[in-house]
Amino acid sequence: MLNPHESSPTCGNPIQKAQSNKDLHITLIGTGTIGLSFAAFHLSHILGPSQLTIYDTRPDVTQYVEENISNFFETPPSTASISNIRIAGSLEVAVEDAHVIQESGPENLEWKMKLWEEVEKHAPKDALLWSSTSGIPASQQAQNMKDKSRLLVVHPYNPPHIMPLLELVPSLETSEQVIQRTQDFWSKRGRVPIHIKKETTGFVANRLAFALLREAIHLVNEGVVSVGELDQIVESSMGPRWAVAGPFKSYHAGGGPAGLEGFFTNIGGTVQEYWRDAGTVNIGDGWEDKVFRQANETYGTVDINERDGITRRLLEVLEEEKGKRK
Score class of each variant (00 low, 15 high):
residue 153 V to T: 15
residue 288 E to R: 13
residue 221 N to P: 11
residue 310 I to F: 04
residue 101 I to K: 01
residue 308 D to V: 08
residue 40 A to M: 05
residue 255 G to C: 05
residue 10 T to C: 04
residue 130 W to I: 07
residue 116 W to I: 10
residue 250 S to D: 06
residue 242 W to C: 05
residue 20 S to N: 07
residue 287 W to Q: 12
residue 8 S to M: 14
residue 133 T to N: 05
residue 215 E to P: 14
residue 283 I to K: 11
residue 308 D to I: 05
residue 228 G to L: 00
residue 286 G to C: 15
residue 61 V to A: 06
residue 62 T to R: 07
residue 212 L to Q: 13
residue 250 S to R: 00
residue 153 V to Q: 05
residue 243 A to K: 08
residue 9 P to G: 04
residue 263 F to A: 09
residue 163 M to D: 01
residue 25 H to D: 09
residue 110 E to I: 09
residue 253 A to T: 12
residue 90 S to R: 02
residue 200 T to Q: 13
residue 114 K to A: 15
residue 57 T to W: 02
residue 36 L to T: 03
residue 1 M to H: 15
residue 257 P to H: 04
residue 128 L to N: 05
residue 50 S to M: 04
residue 149 S to D: 06
residue 264 F to S: 04
residue 34 I to A: 09
residue 15 I to R: 02
residue 282 N to L: 03
residue 212 L to A: 14
residue 22 K to N: 15
residue 287 W to M: 12
residue 54 I to R: 02
residue 101 I to H: 00
residue 169 V to R: 04
residue 106 P to D: 05
residue 83 S to P: 03
residue 17 K to P: 00
residue 60 D to M: 08
residue 288 E to H: 13
residue 304 I to S: 12
residue 260 L to M: 06
residue 92 E to G: 02
residue 248 F to I: 13
residue 274 Y to R: 08
residue 122 H to L: 07
residue 312 R to S: 07
residue 203 F to Y: 14
residue 57 T to K: 06
residue 196 I to S: 07
residue 189 R to V: 01
residue 156 P to V: 12
residue 186 W to A: 01
residue 324 K to T: 11
residue 206 N to K: 01
residue 132 S to P: 10
residue 176 E to L: 08
residue 221 N to G: 13
residue 171 S to P: 08
residue 292 F to Q: 07
residue 295 A to D: 02
residue 226 S to W: 00
residue 141 Q to F: 06
residue 98 A to K: 03
residue 152 L to A: 02
residue 81 S to T: 10
residue 195 H to S: 04
residue 33 T to L: 15
residue 305 N to E: 15
residue 225 V to F: 03
residue 34 I to C: 09
residue 68 N to S: 13
residue 255 G to F: 04
residue 241 R to K: 14
residue 44 S to A: 15
residue 180 Q to M: 12
residue 79 T to M: 01
residue 30 G to V: 11
residue 294 Q to Y: 03
residue 293 R to H: 09
residue 32 G to R: 11
residue 289 D to P: 06
residue 53 T to N: 03
residue 68 N to I: 13
residue 179 I to S: 00
residue 12 G to D: 13
residue 80 A to W: 00
residue 290 K to A: 12
residue 232 Q to S: 13
residue 252 H to N: 15
residue 31 T to V: 15
residue 135 G to N: 05
residue 166 L to Q: 10
residue 150 R to M: 10
residue 287 W to L: 14
residue 217 I to P: 09
residue 167 E to Y: 04
residue 39 A to V: 08
residue 248 F to V: 14
residue 88 A to F: 00
residue 220 V to M: 06
residue 271 V to P: 08
residue 234 V to K: 06
residue 58 R to K: 15
residue 292 F to M: 13
residue 121 K to F: 00
residue 155 H to W: 09
residue 110 E to D: 12
residue 41 F to P: 08
residue 96 E to G: 01
residue 274 Y to P: 01
residue 231 D to E: 11
residue 141 Q to V: 15
residue 60 D to C: 05
residue 166 L to H: 10
residue 97 D to K: 13
residue 256 G to V: 10
residue 136 I to H: 06
residue 252 H to I: 10
residue 240 P to A: 12
residue 231 D to C: 12
residue 142 A to V: 12
residue 265 T to V: 07
residue 174 T to R: 07
residue 314 L to V: 15
residue 110 E to A: 11
residue 49 P to M: 02
residue 65 V to M: 03
residue 67 E to Y: 00
residue 187 S to D: 02
residue 114 K to M: 10
residue 69 I to W: 04
residue 306 E to T: 08
residue 168 L to T: 01
residue 238 M to H: 13
residue 155 H to Y: 10
residue 236 S to G: 06
residue 147 D to S: 11
residue 235 E to H: 11
